[in-house]
């Protein structure tokens, strides 16, 4: 029983992280209809940035968010302006191919610059606390709460501010948004900036808990896709729900099925994805737009 509760707790904590990790992917898809296959690589960039800041200045990964997020925002903004904007109106195949190219380029540039050897961010508080008979890993619990507050702030931003509203308008009907005077290109670029900044932040927060290497991204792209398929496009509650489902499934499988390595998380999420696509292709909650319409 304790083992089960502990597994559920770990799954929940992992799910909170997945929730914030997936937002960038899910919103870019929901708003622009672009499936960003380089998602995992932006996460990896954030993680490397946190590692570099930690090594050079001893900066805490959570404190480094102050630097990581603005830098990644600029990366996302430029990405949209220079590349994605040119493929948005074309068949989805082109966007897939171009982000695939971006993904390969970034991963291999990092391999050349930082070599393939794994890096670590050994923070001093990387222990755990016993509470109510359960073990709370400190870093992961912190990540969970930071992730929840980020989601909450983003939710307020999208619902309450003028810019947030124009992002939602652009997602719902691009032409109508254009008619009422929303500068679509600018809104898209800001959306991409926010999304990549969130992804980089997720990478920075991941850095104390996992080895960082240039090819760590691909499984995260796949997981992001699974979670989006579970939770619906561009929806924050959906991202959190999908993240928790995937997190719990992964942890439960790892805990109760013997002889399976940690790498099988990818296989688990793949099975979940296929099942989900067969049973309920529109996602558990309805998203910014129905998934079938996206092309």
């Amino acid at each position: 029983m304790d083992k089960l509760l502990q597994a559920l707790l770990n799954g929940l904590l992992l799910g909170g992280f997945y929730g914030v990790m997936v937002l960038g992917f899910s919103i870019i898809w929901g708003v622009m209809g672009v499936i960003n296959l380089a998602h995992g690589e932006f996460l990896m960039m954030g993680a490397y940035m946190a590692w570099a800041l930690f090594r050079a200045f001893g900066l805490d990964p959570f404190a480094s968010l102050v630097i990581v997020m603005p830098v990644m925002f600029i990366v996302g903004y430029l990405l949209q302006r220079l590349i994605l904007n040119r493929v948005i109106e074309r068949p989805h195949l082109m966007a897939l191919l171009v982000t695939f190219g971006i993904s390969i380029s970034i991963a291999n540039i990092y391999k050349v610059v930082y070599t393939a050897s794994p890096r670590n961010v050994p923070v001093s508080y990387n222990g755990s606390v016993e509470l109510f008979g359960l073990t709370f890993p400190i870093v992961k619990t912190l990540v969970f709460f930071v992730a929840l507050s980020m989601m909450f702030i983003l939710h307020l931003f999208l619902q309450r501010t003028r810019l947030g509203k124009s992002i939602r308008a652009a997602a719902q009907n691009k032409n109508a948004a254009r008619i009422v005077g929303i500068e679509i290109d600018r809104v898209y670029a800001i959306t991409a900036g926010i999304c990549i900044a969130l992804t980089g932040a997720a990478g920075a927060m991941l850095s104390p808990t996992q080895a960082i290497f240039p090819f760590m991204g691909a499984p995260f792209t796949l997981k992001a896709f699974t979670i989006t398929a579970l939770g619906g496009l561009g929806r924050i509650p959906g991202a959190l729900l999908g993240g928790i489902i995937l997190g719990m499934t992964e942890v439960l499988v790892a805990t109760f099925v013997p002889g399976i390595g940690t790498n099988l998380g990818v296989a688990v999420s793949f099975v979940l994805l296929v099942v989900m696509l067969i049973v309920r292709p529109q996602g558990l909650l309805s998203g910014l737009r129905p998934m079938e319409e996206v092309e």
Partner: peptide, 16 residues
């Protein structure tokens, strides 16, 4: 399903 699902499912199949 439509194209993108297939693309990602195949990427997943490969890694898995």
């Amino acid at each position: 399903l439509k194209g993108p699902y297939f693309s990602i499912a195949m990427l997943g199949t490969f890694v898995a």
